[in-house]
Amino acid sequence: MTVKNEENIDVLKDEVQALRKQMENLAKAVEKNASGKAAAMTAGLEEEIDKYQKMAADKLQKALNAGSDGVENISDRIRQNPLGSLLLAFGAGYVISRLFRQDR
Rank of each mutant, 00 (worst) to 15 (best):
A18N: 07
R101E: 14
A34W: 03
K32T: 10
N73W: 02
Y94M: 13
I49K: 03
G93H: 02
G93R: 05
E24C: 09
R20K: 13
A63I: 09
D10T: 14
N25I: 09
Y94N: 07
M23H: 08
L83T: 07
E31G: 04
D50H: 09
K32W: 06
Q61R: 09
I74D: 00
S85G: 01
E31T: 04
L86Y: 03
G84E: 00
S75W: 01
V71P: 02
Q80T: 04
N25A: 11
A39W: 00
Q53F: 03
K62C: 11
E48N: 09
E46Q: 08
L26H: 13
L64W: 13
S97H: 04
L12I: 12
N33L: 14
R77P: 00
Q102E: 15
V71K: 08
L88A: 11
N33R: 15
E46R: 02
I78F: 01
K62N: 14
I96W: 05
L99S: 04
K28W: 10
F90N: 07
N65Y: 09
K32L: 09
L86D: 03
A27S: 02
V30N: 07
V95T: 08
M55V: 11
K37F: 06
A34P: 00
D69R: 08
A89L: 06
K32C: 07
D10M: 15
F90K: 08
V3M: 15
A56T: 08
Q17E: 14
R101G: 12
M1Y: 11
G93I: 03
R20E: 14
N65G: 14
A89D: 04
G91S: 07
A27N: 08
E46M: 01
Y52G: 01
K21E: 15
A18I: 02
G84V: 04
K21Q: 14
D69K: 10
T2Q: 07
E6Y: 11
A89R: 02
M55F: 10
G67A: 13
K13H: 06
K62T: 12
D69Q: 05
A56G: 01
L86C: 03
K54S: 05
R79M: 01
D14E: 15
D58T: 04
L26F: 09
K13P: 06
M55E: 15
E48W: 06
G36Y: 00
L87P: 01
N5G: 14
R98A: 09
L12K: 06
E47N: 05
N65V: 12
E15C: 02
G93K: 01
E47Y: 02
K13Y: 10
S75A: 11
K13W: 03
A56R: 07
N81I: 00
K59C: 07
N25M: 13
A34S: 07
S85N: 00
K28Y: 09
Q102H: 13
V71F: 04
E31K: 15
S35D: 10
D50C: 08
E48S: 10
I74P: 01
E7W: 13
I49S: 03
L26Q: 12
T42Y: 11
E47D: 14
A57D: 13
P82S: 00
A56P: 03
S35L: 10
F100C: 13
K21S: 11
M55L: 15
L26A: 14
